[in-house]
């Protein structure tokens, strides 16, 4: 790897940047971005996502990282084919999303209009009757009543159209929900397979994990990953030692004093950096 530090380039497989202002998170971002000229190094394998940078108190999912480490070594769980097949089926489901919200709003507003006009028609027609009984002129009111009745008819037509549109949209949505339900059951099956695959890696890599802990200058009691209760940083170091990372691993706060022992201990290119 090659790292640009100020005016000069640092080149090698074990580089100490603890005395420079370049921070570990900046380095990790540069390693993952091929366009970033700060670090020139091979692209990391996916296991790298769980290990950047390795530092005290880091949060990571040991099972997921261990499975990624196994895959970086070319191991394949007996579930891999099924997972890939499920992935393809999930991706092939095309999800339609009819706009129910607009249809609901239209139907509700049309219903409100009809109710309001019905009330106005009833009131106006009551007033016409009252004036007729009192022998008062009603021409003006009758015109108003006729206009309201026309408006009511139009509103009723719109309400019927809106209800039909909503009911069509709801049938389309029901069909689309079948697809969503199918997709969800495929997603659940895939998650079960992934869990099973992680269990498989956990089992297969139990020995290498325990030996890696043993081989590191750390305090954690060597244990298989399912029983491991030590610090996350030390589990991450063990996984880094097992995995094929390709890219340099960034270490913060130990446990190695000098870069060459880190390089030897993890069997990977390393950068010692500050937080």
């Amino acid at each position: 790897m090659r790292i640009q530090v100020g005016e000069t380039d640092r080149v090698g497989q074990a580089i100490d940047l603890r005395g420079t202002p370049i921070r570990a998170t900046r380095l990790a971002a540069a390693i993952r971005d091929p366009a970033d000229s700060l670090v020139i190094a091979p692209q990391p394998t996916p296991v790298y996502d769980h290990l950047e940078p390795i530092r005290p108190g880091m949060e990571f999912d040991c099972r997921v990282a261990l499975a990624a480490a196994g895959r970086s070594l070319g191991l394949e769980s007996p579930h891999a084919t099924a997972i890939a097949r499920l992935e393809r089926r999930i991706e092939s489901i095309d999800l339609e999303t009819p706009n129910l919200r607009a249809a609901r709003r239209r139907a509700a507003e049309a219903g409100t209009d009809v109710a309001a006009l019905e009330e106005q028609v009833a009131r106006t027609s009551g007033r016409v009757n009252a004036r007729q009984e009192a022998d008062l002129p009603v021409e003006e009111l009758e015109e108003r009543l006729a206009a309201l009745t026309r408006e009511l008819t139009e509103a009723e037509t719109e309400a019927i159209a809106a209800r039909e549109a909503l009911s069509r949209a709801e049938s389309e949505a029901a069909a689309a929900r079948d697809d969503r339900a199918d997709r969800l059951s495929l997603v659940d099956r895939r998650e079960n397979r992934r869990r099973a695959a992680r269990e498989w890696f956990l089992d297969v890599l139990a020995g290498p994990f325990e030996r890696a802990l043993q081989g590191l200058p750390i305090g954690a009691e060597p244990a298989p990953p399912s029983d491991y209760t030590g610090p996350s940083q030390e589990a991450a170091l063990a996984i880094a030692r097992i995995a094929d990372l390709a890219a340099p691993v960034v270490l913060v706060d130990g446990p190695f004093e000098i870069p060459v022992t880190a390089r030897a201990g993890l069997d990977a290119p390393v950068i010692l950096a500050r937080v």
Partner: peptide, 8 residues
């Protein structure tokens, strides 16, 4: 009714 794992 939820139709995705996030919604569920």
């Amino acid at each position: 009714i939820a139709y995705s794992s996030e919604a569920r």
